[in-house]
Nucleic acid binder design. Structure first.
Lengths: 357, 357
DNA sequence: TTGTATGCGTTATCAA
DNA sequence: TTGATAACGCATACAA
């Protein structure tokens, strides 16, 4: 007999207790139901399931028995009301087209689950769309919010800060009493790649950008241009991109179709770089790295594919998530707020696209 | 004056109502707090925020005023207790290395958010690990669970069904009162690619598999082998893979290093196919499609990159999520359970890897 | 229209 | 060890 059929039977008065319990549109048995069936008090049931408390073996067995028959699972919802803690953390993402965010999300889920938190994923096309979502998050009383948005305006950050919940913001310059910024060392990466390009003999340079508002993009460019200037090199040609393959492809076509052909190209992320490589090789008949050196940022899986072999920087999702977990657990434990922005390093990973024999 | 400083001041007795409210470790003001400040009853506050009810304009203003000063946001938690509905849906994923799952997750989040549900993401390495997670989901009283696990054992499905919650399982053969299966037409895709390979003149064939327990993998292979047999072609050589780039690379090396060299290779998904292409081109010096025709499944973004141009099948994440949303909303509305497995089509997308001039 | 009282399913406190 | 009782924050039936 299936569950549904049994439910139907229940309305005809033939069912056992297990079914009567669910008459009123209830899906779950409550501790009261279990108590009634076991012939004990509701508190006894609660104690049986809340670990540390003392219950006699007899009572325990009676309760466990009834619970099993009723498929009882304690609800965490009332606990939230009592403790003002939901054990829910939200992560805000703005589209997962970039494999780096996938990695972040994966690490995030695993680490926070291990820390006993459940993860709410929230999609916000832009930081503007955040306004619609924030009230809902507040309504669910999430313990913390992590923003993985590439672009986060001060206004949106303010709105988040008003919630009086710990907020961790990835690759953003914002920092205040409630918002902690966790970034990787974007500036340093820009400097490092400038050094590498020059060491490899490049004399002219190009940079394909990410979205204008992206802090990571700005910092990578700043480091790159700054170091080039220090080295006395010519400033790079710059073409706007958008962190996507197609953007890199199009930007590279624009940059290399004139008579100015940079000998080395730094892209704000790996997807852009891969798009650029394809544009150069497939559409323009240029060779990488023989004609043009190329580097990206993120070390997405495709960067290490044999056909690509992209020189890039490790975007340490695990490290950044670790920081986020630390901030949240500290805040949850009532500790002091984290005052300073946190920065994880982004080591260079050199592969074929910058190697000339 | 920052929020934190104000709180500190509050303990010194200098603060306004807004801060006193939060003394007891409370993060949020409650409707009672608002009522007190506004000089009205708690029900008045509730009515003001629950839309449909009648409240006089004067009261409304007083309430809204106090609410603003207290930063009041109604909690949804008590509502869950009253209605037995959390508006929470969970999606179970087993690692996001496969870009297809990324797409699924993205579509999922957007669609369910639009439907007024919040999305809980749960990571389960294997279907075995599900056992640890299921109780937690039950504790949060999720309205439905969607499993995007490539492999879902009948045991795990049983455990899910015991929750008496609607469960939607992607690409799985399981179907019962509580579990609805949503798949794409994997068998048909296998048949289609067999036809295409033969039409393109291939005489010998290969297949690189996904994980053994994956229903999608089994069905794609079945369709492929079945149709080849019908066409009187030789059965394909088969090498085990795992849905990953590295697996495809290694499997292709094994398959093509002997003297048996299939003229056409079908891979259980795109990542495998891309790995195989790289192995053939970079390591074995074979040409694709001139020497070997290759096709995959999923149509991940990389499949359409200029350097790859992979013939594949559209794995319609949006379509599958649509079905899931439909099932959940139907079940939530108390409708009849969905009895039959749902299947979405997977149209062929032909690109360079199967085109010979 | 407004306020009072009750219940939702837990945990924690207290008395027995 | 056990059971009765009071919260938690909201919605709702009912009384005023």
């Amino acid at each position: 007999m299936t569950a549904r059929k049994k439910s139907a039977a229940a309305t005809q008065g033939q069912a056992g207790h297990a079914d009567l319990v669910r008459e009123a549109g209830k899906k779950y048995a409550s501790s009261v139901d279990v108590a009634r069936m076991a012939g004990v008090s509701q508190s006894a049931v609660s104690r049986t399931f809340s670990g540390g408390a003392k219950v006699s073996e007899v009572t325990r067995q009676k309760v466990l028995d009834a619970a099993k028959r009723l498929d009882y699972r304690p609800s965490l919802i009332p606990r939230i009301m009592l403790t003002h803690k939901s054990n829910l953390v939200a992560i805000v993402v703005g589209g997962l087209y970039n494999p780096f965010y996938t990695t972040v999300l994966d690490e995030f889920t695993v680490r926070f689950q291990a820390a006993g938190q459940q993860v709410l994923i929230v999609h916000a096309e832009s930081d503007h769309a955040l306004d619609d979502v924030i009230p809902k998050l507040a309504s669910y009383r999430v313990d913390a919010i992590v923003s993985a948005l590439a672009v986060l305006s001060p206004q949106a950050a303010d709105a988040l800060a008003r919630l009086r919940i710990p907020v961790i913001s990835f690759n953003t310059a914002i920092q205040n009493d409630w918002v902690t910024s966790v970034s990787c060392d974007n500036v340093e990466a820009g400097r490092t790649i400038a050094d590498l390009f020059v060491a490899r003999g490049a004399r002219s340079f190009g940079f394909i950008t990410g979205p204008a508002g992206s802090r990571a993009n700005i910092d990578r460019r700043k480091g790159f241009e700054g170091r080039l200037a220090e080295l006395g090199a010519r400033p790079p040609a710059v073409e706007p991109g958008d962190y996507r393959y197609e953007g890199g492809f199009a930007a590279a076509l624009r940059m290399f179709s004139g008579r100015q052909r940079p000998e080395a190209l730094f892209c704000a992320n790996d997807l852009l770089a891969i798009g650029a490589i394809d544009a150069l090789r497939q559409s323009l008949g240029l060779r990488v790295p023989e004609d043009v050196l190329i580097a990206g940022f993120d070390d997405i899986p495709a960067a290490s594919w044999a056909s690509i072999g992209l020189t890039t920087f490790l975007h340490d999702a695990a490290g950044m998530v670790d920081k986020a977990v630390a901030v949240v657990t500290a805040a949850t434990a009532g500790g002091a707020p984290v005052a300073a922005p946190m920065i994880v390093s982004a080591p260079l990973i050199e592969r074929a696209t910058t190697r000339r024999r």
